[in-house]
Amino acid sequence: MIKFEHVGKRYLKKVALKDINLELKPGKIVGLIGENGSGKSTTLKLIAGLIQPTSGVVTVNGRRVTRRISEHVAYLSELDEFYGFFTVGEMIAFFASQYPDFNREKAEEIRRFMKLAPDSKIKNLSKGNRGRLKIVLTLAREVPVVLMDEPLSGLDPMVRDAIVKGLISFIDLERQIVLITTHEIKEVETILDEVLLIKGGEIIGHKNVEELRDRENLGLVEWMTKVYAGDCPPTV
């Protein structure tokens, strides 16, 4: 379980997150949406232990988060930087050697699904293929928490659709919780169980996506637009 208790994060003078209280349980795919600079990536980095809260506490399965929470958390960064001297196959092998939970067979399966050649040098990969490689490396880990920061960024629409469909088959929802930040809301909407809406470092909405669709007859983009405009009350 992921827990935020009065978590704040500040970069120099900029407040990135304000007094966040949050509990997320396994077995769900949760979307984290909001405008640029709203605090989505900061939230994921805090869970991954790659940054520390300025105030409050973040825990994963009761353990206070430091960078070594990576034993239990797989993190897909929005950044495209890799060790360029590796080939795709070598990078997969390297990850397999570093993470005891890395499932090599699953990685190969996802790699084939992503149509990535194992002998391609990473430094020669296109942005789209780097994005695919990130997905391979993240989803091949059998960890309770999977964090994906803009996994669809830089991918063309057809590939995005294939990846979104693939995501469901490569995630073990019995044991995993997946948090996805994205601007491609419509593309992931169909696979999300819950959605968190962030604005100015605050969570201003937390909804069950199916309920939102069935009871309020709203798509995510419409709901987000309404809440941002103040036509819909915050739901936290």
Binding site: A48, L50, R67, R68, S70, E71, Y75, S77, L79, E81, F82, Y83, Q98, Y99, P100
Partner: peptide
């Protein structure tokens, strides 16, 4: 420096 998200995400001490 530019790959800290990979280096620091290692579970190794």
């Amino acid at each position: 420096r530019k790959k800290l998200h990979l280096w620091l995400a290692s579970p190794l001490p």
